[in-house]
Design a protein around this nucleic acid. Sequence first.
DNA 1: CTATAATATGAGGATTTATCACATTTGTAA
DNA 2: TTACAAATGTGATAAATCCTCATATTATAG
Lengths: 206, 206
Amino acid sequence: MNEVGPIEGVRREPTQKRSRERVERILSCASTLIEKSGSDAMRMSDVAEMAGISIGSLYQYFPDKGAIIRTLAERYNVLGQQCIAEGLQDVQGREGLRRAFGELIDVYYAMFLAEPVMRDIWSGTQADKALRDISLADSRINGAVLAAARARVDPKADRDELEASSFLIMQLGEATMRLAISVERKEGDALVEHFKRMVLREMMEG
Amino acid sequence: MNEVGPIEGVRREPTQKRSRERVERILSCASTLIEKSGSDAMRMSDVAEMAGISIGSLYQYFPDKGAIIRTLAERYNVLGQQCIAEGLQDVQGREGLRRAFGELIDVYYAMFLAEPVMRDIWSGTQADKALRDISLADSRINGAVLAAARARVDPKADRDELEASSFLIMQLGEATMRLAISVERKEGDALVEHFKRMVLREMMEG
DNA sequence: CTATAATATGAGGATTTATCACATTTGTAA
DNA sequence: TTACAAATGTGATAAATCCTCATATTATAG
């Protein structure tokens, strides 16, 4: 189940370190290739060649093509989680929550627009069972963070309701981002604004 | 560009009719196979064998595997469109709109739950460019219908805003359905209810 | 230096989509 | 009926890829 490192019980330092470097190089090359023409068109042979290793070695570091994609997806998700956690950690009062969440959406949208790899991977999220699971887990984590912030602002709200609502908001936010980047830029901006308004109302008026 | 029929300029009746039957048989077999193990696991050779024709013939009726999936997807979409158009055609007043839309979501959700093929195809919607385009076009059509109903109920609302909002609602509705069927049934029900509440507020309070 | 363990290699197995040269059937007209 | 043309059917096989595995190389330890 070790997705990133190939070895189960290695103890020696240098080897482990070289292994890390290899993994990083593979991921970096995969990133470049995905950026160029999408994860679907990314060939394992291209990744190997670009990373300067053989196909066989590539498969020693990642059990299959999906594992590379998943690893990249998880890294982006971690970035997103940090972003959300930071944005919501100190919210105070209803207005604070409103402002923080609005900014969060903008930041997320900017991230989507700026990262071709992220766009590619998330566009295909629903296709692969494993990626869908990652996306769901991510939304659960972020949803919990949002629910906590909302609970702080409105302590008398039902906690389970907040959880469910926040989880849904995270998933719909993802869907909105995917939608926004798949239409003309101006329309995408407008859609994100609509989403923001809709969600803020849901959050403010319980 | 003729996705369903194989021939461009056929005029003779019997041939065309037989062709239709073949197409229907192929789609029906594909449906069964998808229902059994998903569109990904559906092999063109299985479809051909089940339909009692050769691979070559199969490719005479559908240019590629995706075309079969797309045709099925479009058929389900047409069903959905009819459902939405009927549900919204005679809405009168704010309460009428509220009730009609609420019922519409329930009907759609029931459709998703009941149709394994629909679930499979829509789960993967975001993966394939062609399917994504179909989904977008579908949401545009349904969004326009919803926008029209909302405009009738609230004539002074900005028409462009209604269009954009309704388009977004349709896409998010789809996302909610996908989400709902991918979690435990009880949680899915709750999520659909949350979505309904959120959207109704958006629609009622402009 | 030798033995053992770790890592690298790339030809080829396996799977699956899609093609195409040829065979067969169907429709039409003399 | 027969002959010819058009439409349709066939399936071996090309093509594209993912991934494996037997073998070779390199590194570490005694």
